[in-house]
Design a protein around this nucleic acid. Structure first.
Lengths: 191, 191
DNA sequence: GGCTTTGTACTGACCGGTCAGTACAAATCT
DNA sequence: AGATTTGTACTGACCGGTCAGTACAAAGCC
């Protein structure tokens, strides 16, 4: 088997297992078994459990960030923001275990990878921040908006809502959920 | 020493240690030492490490929910919502490690423990949902607002923003962060 | 064509350390 | 006097990480 194919199988296995039980509770033996691979192969492809995890995080977040960038590209400011939110929602719908892993593990305290994990997550948030900045520059959002905090808020809001949606009412159409999020974003709360 | 006094000391010790090193990295021996208690005492008072942590989670969420209920009590609808958000933010500022524990444990996908953790979290979200319902009833929010989704969104938004705040710019005043959150909530994004 | 060599990917038994949990007799509350 | 705590010693399962060895295809060699 090719190296990259093996790596991807390990990624997929690790994402599932970590989403279920957490990083600390997931053993390297489990990951290897789920991927249909010997334990040594994990250490041949990645130097350590931590390295595997950080590569996995990197891989997943890069895909999320790319999805967001694609959604934003070439759209006018406010529409771009909404497209990004819709894209984040869709991504989570398709990669639910990864989303669980992301929300659960980026806020764990402890290890060295912790800081790195947070920086990786920033890449996704940064796309939202960019969209917000553009909107501010175009004058469609308040000039004194705290872009960093707002981006973090939008990201977290979408992530939480998406996971609640998947867990509690998965049969509900995406568009429904997206509409509620848009209303919140646009300040359509007030009658 | 009385049984409950010992329990409280163990509790305090466990919280401190989680603040320093995280949940997974904290050993029972450490907890006992920090509490100035023999290891056997931990197992006399709690049957296992898991039981100790589950009691901790229960204890913490109940305090968070109580804090939110206090903040909401006797306030007019919109002000109540704002007070709840401020209270959640302040609570997380003061109990950061607990907030991390909460966010990490409620989003797993398997097992009974996860379901229980989820139900516990609901208690806090429910307070926000109540405030939103009151506001809808009072006519200050849209009649057709999806209260459950909105409550989840607000809770997740505040949690994410609060942890980002603590991690990236802890010296920033709470009021600053709270103001941005309230602007988002009230739709004051647009100039 | 047959042969050796080389590089890459993978295997799985094994090791050493860690840590939850146990045991229990003696001390100390209340 | 019964409930609670102490102190210490111990067990054994588990787990991250290692390493000598296998498989095998492509490349060089005669």
């Amino acid at each position: 088997m090719t190296r990259s194919a093996t790596r991807e199988r390990l990624f997929a296995a690790a994402i599932e297992l970590i989403a279920e039980s957490g990083l600390a509770a997931t053993t390297v033996d489990q990951i290897a078994a789920r991927a249909g691979v010997a334990k040594g192969t994990v250490y041949y492809n990645f130097g350590s459990k931590a390295e595997l995890f950080s590569a996995l995080l990197e891989f997943g977040v890069e895909r999320l960030a790319a999805t967001l960038r694609d959604a934003v590209a070439g759209r006018p400011p406010l529409e771009a923001l909404e497209a990004a939110v819709a894209a984040e929602l869709a991504f989570i719908g398709e990669h639910e275990p990864f989303a669980r892993l992301l929300i659960a593990e980026t806020w764990r305290s402890g290890g060295d990878w912790q800081r790195a994990a947070r920086l990786i997550r920033e890449r996704a948030v940064e796309v939202l921040a960019g969209a917000l900045r553009d909107a501010v520059a175009a004058g469609v959002l308040r000039r004194d908006l705290d872009v960093a905090t707002a981006a973090s808020a939008v990201f977290g809001m979408v992530l939480t809502v998406a996971l609640d949606w998947r867990a509690l009412q998965p049969e509900r159409p995406v568009d429904d959920v997206r509409a509620t999020l848009m209303d919140l974003l646009r300040g359509r709360l007030v009658p």
